[in-house]
Amino acid sequence: MAVLSTAASRSHRQAATRREWRRFVIGMLFVMPWLLGFIFWTAYPILASLYYSFTAYDVLNPPRFIGWANYVNLFQHDNLFQTVLGNTIYFVVVGVPAVLIISFLMANLLNKEMRFRALFRTAFFVPSIVPAVASAMVWLWMYNPNYGLIDNILATFNIPAVPWLSSLRLAKLSLIFINVWASGSAILIFLGALQDVPRSLYDAAVVDGANRWQRFWNVTVPMSSPAILFVAITSMIGTFQYFTLPWLLTQGGPDNATNLYAVYLYQNAFQFFKMGYASAMAWVLFVIIVVFTVLIFRTGGAKVYYGGQVD
């Protein structure tokens, strides 16, 4: 095919290419800090971590390639790992729904016209801005089996002290309770979602004769389902990486009942200096998180109603 390009249009095209090139350079310059950071602090570490997970590496000696041994050990020879994994899944299966249900109900309570609403909202939110270490100290004192607030009140009524953090049965639940206490941000997210529910839907439901309970299940819950799904996924991910409170409050005890994934991973890496083993744990964690995310999307995601979505 004959190309009918005149000199004018060629130079025009060249100018366009030059302009595009200029745009590219300027754009790259703006994102350069992030891009360099991505290469140094993310891309390389991902590759390195993958490599370390197939080695035995104690930091002092160079890494020694051992194939799949770390992964095999995790699942076949490390009983503690299985306990830890079980504990963590318990925290996800019990703790995440607890946070979801309680903070959703609280948000519904707060979504009514009332005096001092801002005050209540602040009261519910403040625990969640308390830094983790500070809340560990506060709860260490709250749960103190002799003079902590809870057991002190029990003692007032001559009820024997309950070892909240050192009892095999209660330690997990005591930690989960702290999570519920500090879930103010979830309440705030739900509150935002609830306030976006159009009033007209409730009015329509009332006209249709739906009672309060039916309005809750058929209007409130579906309309806030994206927020519920969102909080479910973020708190699931957060729980799998839960470190500071179990580390400070129980050190994984009693008898590893609160030894969680992130704690055991940290111990392997920075106390036992099993860097290869810990890297393998990190990758297993990544896979588990992906699997749980997909699971939540599959089971709950189908029921999620996105406003403006067209069937």
Binding site: N179, S185, P226, I233, T234, S235, I237, G238, Q241
Partner: peptide, 14 residues
């Protein structure tokens, strides 16, 4: 991404 404070910021993932 710690679970306490973080629910608001991580809004993003949604």
């Amino acid at each position: 991404r710690r679970c306490q404070l973080v629910a608001i910021p991580t809004t993003v993932i949604w």
